[in-house]
């Protein structure tokens, strides 16, 4: 069985985000870019399934500008067998990504498609669900545990939902999106970085996959959250009560 994993190149989550002066988006120039942490977890899970002998190949897919190849290289250094890069320069919104993924699934025919539950840049949390819908595959989102049964051709997924865990059993092929507590991704070691150099990254364009990239959404404006006002130190309880009553109007 083949596993396909979608990985996204995003602004590193430790970077302080700056909004562009024209409010058209966030500043990405000269900013450290890394693999979306949820995607790292998705890839790690695929690799673990492969290492347990339940899968034969892990294919990492990324979409976007040329530099996505760097992110794919990271994925290959972690252990993915090969990469696919769909080169697209414009904005890619979840529905377009889901359509591209469906097209790639038709080419590659994986038994399992694993994605991160969301990307930390737009926080959409939509792609996995959309692609499952387009493929008409069962979906297990927010997975915190994944157990594959090769004989039954099924996968059991524990989901973190409000108030507890939900366990689903999905027939393969299926879509899984990963939550944070699923696993701890491995590091890229030097021997694996070296091996990754000779691994293949195949390039597609949206046209190759017969997908038209169009945007159903328009970003009107991106603004920073309001800055927190500095606090004041009050000198007495009376003053505090006075301020709560007359300034904050909370009591």
């Amino acid at each position: 069985m083949k596993i396909m994993v979608a990985i996204k190149r995003v602004i590193d989550y430790a970077v302080k985000i700056r909004v562009k002066p024209d409010k058209s988006g966030v500043e990405t120039k000269n900013v450290k870019m890394s693999m979306n942490p949820f995607c790292e977890i998705a890839l790690e899970e695929a690799l673990r399934i492969k290492e347990s002998g339940m899968a034969s190949e892990v294919v990492a897919v990324s979409m976007g500008p040329t530099q996505c190849v760097d992110t794919l290289r990271t994925g290959l250094a972690m252990g993915a067998d090969r990469g696919i890069h769909v080169e697209a320069t414009g904005a890619l919104l979840p529905l377009s990504v889901a359509r591209l993924l469906r097209a790639l699934v038709e080419v590659e025919e994986p038994g399992l498609l694993i994605l991160g539950k969301q990307a930390i840049d737009d926080d959409c949390n939509q792609t996995g669900q959309m692609v499952a819908g387009l493929l008409n595959w069962p979906q297990g989102t927010f997975a915190s545990k994944v157990v594959l049964d090769k004989e039954k051709q099924a996968v059991t997924v524990d989901r973190e939902v409000d108030g507890g865990l939900e366990t689903l059993c999905l027939d393969l092929p299926a879509v899984i999106t990963t939550d944070l507590r699923l696993n701890q991704p491995r590091y890229a070691t030097l021997p694996n970085i070296m091996k990754a150099k000779s691994k293949v990254i195949k390039k597609f364009s949206p046209q190759d996959l017969n997908v038209e990239i169009k945007s159903d959404l328009e970003v009107v404006q991106v603004t920073e959250p309001p800055k927190r006002k500095a606090g004041v130190i009050v000198s007495s309880v009376d003053e505090l009560i006075d301020k709560l009553k007359n300034e904050a109007n909370v009591i």
Binding site: D12, Y13, S34, M35, P191, I193
Partner: peptide, 28 residues
């Protein structure tokens, strides 16, 4: 990154390092 990688792979080839990992993001 290219410079560092090339250096590390060279050092590994020369036996100066026996193993290593390269951080892929700021968290690592």
């Amino acid at each position: 990154k290219e410079k560092l990688e090339a250096f590390l792979l060279h050092a590994m080839g020369a036996g100066l390092i026996t193993d290593g990992a390269l951080a892929q993001d700021i968290n690592q």
